[in-house]
């Protein structure tokens, strides 16, 4: 009889706390949901950017205000997370590509041909990195080509080959099997506020064509 009474007592007590537990559960769900929404959206805006912070031309993405004083918080967060120190966008532009012209990820086990036109800047350099910005291991020490060293056709256009094996002409050696990031930096952009000049740079960015995969 006594144990039956204790059982009933406990049941009532549990029942009394049920609304409180339900409320606490809803609050916990609310907090977890809010943190998840905030974190995922923040990650996306920092990692991928948006039309407010980046411009996309073909495969190439540009963080519009990289390095600027008073840059938007997303750009500052992106550069901080990556550990980059870009020159202000009024003087230099940094275009990054992780996908080829067909939208496929740029991979170290494939060969690529980059077809470019003259780029209106004092100096430019194209380099290959791992996806987190590390310099790739390279036997031939050829992981970049710049405007001083590139071999051009008569009309100023050029083709750069990215391949694991030696290619004639402009060749950047890629090794390994991981995904790659290409970075094209242009120094000496004196008139980036001039729409025509800025457009001409973006129109002349190299087209990244995938050739063969191993």
């Amino acid at each position: 009889m006594k144990s039956r009474l204790i059982y009933l007592k406990n049941k009532i007590r549990r029942y009394r706390h049920a609304p409180l537990l339900a409320f606490a559960g809803r609050i916990a769900l609310f907090i977890v949901g809010g943190i998840a929404i905030g974190s995922i959206s923040a990650w996306y805006m920092i990692e991928k950017g948006s039309a407010l912070t980046t411009s996309q031309t073909g495969s190439w993405q540009l963080w519009i205000h990289a390095g600027d004083v008073g840059a938007d918080p997303y750009t500052l967060a992106h550069m901080s997370r990556d550990g980059r120190l870009p020159i202000t966008s009024s003087n230099a532009l940094y275009f990054a590509a992780t996908h080829d012209s067909e939208g496929e990820k740029i991979a170290a086990d494939c060969d690529y041909a980059l077809a470019g036109k003259p780029l209106d800047s004092d100096w430019w350099s194209l380099a290959v990195y791992t996806s987190d910005g590390r310099h790739i291991k390279n036997k031939s020490d050829r992981s970049s080509i710049n405007s001083s060293s590139v071999l051009r056709f008569e009309n100023g256009s050029f083709t750069i080959n990215l391949a694991q094996r030696v290619r004639s002409g402009n060749w950047i050696e890629i090794t390994g099997e991981e995904d790659l990031t290409l970075m094209l930096r242009l120094y000496g952009i004196r008139a980036s506020k001039d729409a025509q000049r800025s457009n001409s740079i973006e129109q002349n960015l190299p087209i990244i064509r995938r050739l063969d995969c191993h």
Binding site: G34, I35, G38, A42, P73, Y74, L76, M79, S80, R81
Partner: peptide, 15 residues
């Protein structure tokens, strides 16, 4: 609104 507040905090604190 709570998610947006978390989003803003992360963006501003990150640097």
């Amino acid at each position: 609104v709570f998610g947006a507040a978390v989003h803003i905090c992360i963006i501003l604190i990150m640097p």
